[in-house]
Amino acid sequence: MNGLNFSLNAPVSSLSPITWGHLLYISLVAVVAVVIAKVLTIYLKKGLTDKIKRSQLDMLLKIVNYGIGIIAFLVILPYFQVDLSGLLVAGGFASLVIGIASQSVLGNLMSGIFLIIERPIAIGDNINIGDVSGNVADINIISTIIKTYDGIYVRVPNETVFTSPITNYVAHVARRFEYTVGIPYAADATLAIGIIRQVIQDHPLALREPSPSVYVDELADNSVNIMVRIWAPSTDWWDVRTELLWTIKAELEKNGIDVPFPQREVWFRNELQGGISIKQGKPVSPPPPPPPTEEPDKTI
């Protein structure tokens, strides 16, 4: 026993006052801190995953883990016999050098802190920063991790995030999207608008308020263009957009309103040689020539 006490009280090296006992204690504190952090993480994940948002849970886990790490650090700090005041004086010059060298790191750190305070983005948000678009996978102290829509990992330094224009597509609970639906000139636009309105009304996630707007927007070259503007929950707008577009097309066609192709009417000055086929493939006699005109071939 005495031999064990002696060995635990013996310094690790002649240069350091830290004993083997201190080292054991420090290791024990570190292990206990890691175990507590792991257990708390598992417990919080089990208990809260289906109760709070993923972003909130991630933030809570970070706070818990960093908190445990800081407490463990403060517990073991005295055993290193660090004289903070002496360290400050002695390290003044070194701090200056390190400060200049790590300017960008500090910039990122400060930006990270401001991002956490201002919270323009949260984990899981659908965003665009500069030329990077995707979902925010993580917000760290130094950088923000974005998973692009192609599943690519992109690390953006927080300073870049903080100084770039950020578009957050889900910051508000609802957002609007729009289509332009072209119908033939011969079709009844009022009927088409009624059909489109009904399709929107039948979709559960096309919001009732703000009400959708459907109106004739343009008399275009080849079609009468109907503008369709719909609000949907920000979290589901893409699904709503894709589902509604095809349903609108199908419903219009079911009611005899085809989406027109680009058309061009061509008048020929001279009678064409040979027969002209129409869509059904039956040959018909060539149409009568247009009235004489001074102009060359005219296209409308």
């Binding site: 508000h172 609970v173 009304q201 559960p204 919001l207 009732r208 929950p233």
Partner: peptide, 19 residues
């Protein structure tokens, strides 16, 4: 029943609600 959702309030401060 068929479901329909709506926005109560403004898009920046409101909530999505079942209508």
């Amino acid at each position: 029943n068929r479901q329909k959702y709506t926005l109560y309030g403004l898009s920046d401060r409101g909530v999505i609600a079942r209508w």
